[in-house]
C-alpha cells in the first residue's frame, strides 16, 4: 500500500487559483487592448509589450536576487500589472520611461511591501502616478487616435483628452455646452467606442465595460465596488450638473471619459488593495467616486481616477479593521 496522506478537512477544493484569477483579468482586458491596437497601432503594441515584459523581468530579478525566493512570475499578477500600467500610458511614450514606470510599479509598488498580496496600493497606479508627476510633459501629450485603416493623420499629432479640453476651455471662460459643441470635441458615441485622445486603455468605455461584465460573470470581482463607484459619480456629478450645466459637465460624460471605466472595473476592484467586507467595499467605492469628482472639478489635474483610488487604498486597512461583516447569530430574530 502507498503511504497514506493525513491532513485536516476539507479534502476537496474548489479548483480556484491565483493563476486562474489573474489570467481571467487578462482575458477581460483583451477587448480594451484590441481597441487600443486599432486606434494606435504599433505604438500601442510597443507600449504593452515593453510594459508587460519589463514587469515580468523586474519581478523575477527582485524575487530571485533581492528577496532570495522562488520566483512566482507565472502566477500572472505581474502580467496584470504590466497591462494595467500600459493602459495608463500614452502610446508614444519613450521606452525608457515605460521601463522606469515598470520598475516603480513592481519594485516600489509591490515587492518593497513583500510581494503579491502584501502591497497596500495598486502597483500599476503607483507606477502611473510616479510617471505622471515626474514626466508631466511626456505623460500628457496623447497622440490623436489614428485608426489602422485610415491615412488621414500622422503619428506626430497630439491632442488633449476630453476632460483636458473642458478644463482648458473653462479657463478660457467658455461654457461647457460651448466646448462640447466644438466640432473637434468627441461626442458620446466616440467616447464610448474610444475615438478620442487619451491613454491606451482608457479609450473605449464599451470595451472596458465588456471586460467588467466578464469578470462579474466569472466572479473574479464582486458588484459592490463598481456599483458604488459609478453610483456615487452619477449622483455627485448629477447634483452639480443640475445646479449649473454651463460650468459642470453631465454625469454620462464623466462616466465615459478619463479612464473612469478602467478605474471602476480594473483598478478599484484590485482585490489586494480593496477592502474585504461588503460594506467596506461599498464605502470604498463611494469614496473613490467622490474623490475622483472632487479632483476633476477643483483639482489641478483634469483626471482624478488614479489619485482617488490610491488615496482610498490608503484607507483600506482602516476599513478592514472597523467595518466587519454581519456575524451569524448577531441579531436574534424570531420568525
Amino acid at each position: 500500500m502507498d503511504t497514506l496522506t493525513i491532513s485536516g478537512s476539507p479534502h476537496v477544493f474548489g479548483g480556484q487559483s491565483v493563476k486562474k484569477i489573474m489570467y481571467g483579468v487578462v482575458i477581460a482586458m483583451i477587448p480594451a487592448m484590441l481597441v487600443s491596437l486599432y486606434f494606435f497601432g504599433f505604438g500601442a503594441l510597443r507600449v504593452i509589450l515593453v510594459s508587460v515584459v519589463s514587469c515580468l523581468i523586474f519581478e523575477y530579478l527582485i524575487q530571485k536576487h533581492l528577496m532570495k525566493l522562488e520566483p512566482t512570475i507565472n502566477d500572472g499578477s505581474a502580467v496584470v500589472t504590466g497591462i494595467l500600467l500600459a493602459f495608463n500610458l500614452p502610446s508614444n511614450l519613450p521606452v525608457w520611461i515605460i521601463l522606469v514606470g515598470a520598475l516603480v510599479a513592481i519594485g516600489i509598488g509591490k515587492m518593497s511591501f513583500g510581494g503579491l498580496g502584501k502591497n497596500p496600493f495598486n502597483p500599476a497606479l503607483v507606477g502611473r502616478v510616479f510617471l505622471l508627476i515626474s514626466f508631466p510633459v511626456q505623460m500628457t501629450s496623447w497622440p490623436v487616435p489614428k485608426p489602422v485603416f485610415s491615412s488621414a493623420l500622422t503619428d506626430a499629432v497630439t491632442g488633449p483628452t476630453p476632460l483636458g479640453l473642458i478644463k482648458d476651455g473653462l479657463k478660457l471662460g467658455k461654457t461647457v455646452p460651448e466646448i462640447m459643441s466644438d466640432p473637434t470635441f468627441p461626442d458620446y458615441i466616440q467616447t464610448l467606442i474610444g475615438n478620442h485622445g487619451g491613454s491606451l486603455g482608457e479609450m473605449s468605455a464599451i470595451a472596458l465595460i465588456l471586460g467588467g461584465i466578464y469578470m462579474l460573470i466569472r466572479k473574479i470581482i464582486t458588484w459592490e465596488i463598481p456599483v458604488a463607484y459609478i453610483g456615487s459619480v452619477v449622483i455627485f456629478t448629477g447634483i452639480f450638473w443640475l445646479i449649473d450645466p454651463t460650468y459642470y459637465a453631465d454625469p454620462l460624460f464623466h462616466l465615459l471619459t478619463g479612464g473612469m471605466m478602467l478605474g471602476v472595473f480594473f483598478m478599484a476592484t484590485d482585490m489586494v488593495s480593496s477592502p474585504m467586507s461588503r460594506t467596506g467595499q461599498l464605502i470604498y467605492g463611494v469614496g473613490c467616486g467622490v474623490l475622483t469628482i472632487l479632483i476633476r472639478i477643483w483639482g489641478a489635474y483634469p483626471e482624478g481616477v488614479s489619485f482617488a483610488i490610491l488615496i482610498m487604498n490608503a484607507f483600506v486597512p482602516l476599513l478592514n479593521k472597523y467595518i466587519k461583516p454581519k456575524r451569524f447569530g448577531e441579531v436574534v430574530k424570531h420568525g
Binding site: 503511504t3 496522506t5 493525513i6 491532513s7 485536516g8
Partner: peptide, 21 residues
C-alpha cells in the same frame, strides 16, 4: 514515517489531527 502529514506547519494542529507520521 508510516503516513504523510500535509497541512499547516504547526505541531499543535498535527498533534490534534493524529499521532503523527
Amino acid at each position: 514515517k508510516k503516513v504523510q502529514y500535509e497541512g499547516a506547519a504547526s505541531c499543535a494542529f498535527a498533534h490534534a489531527l493524529s499521532s503523527g507520521d
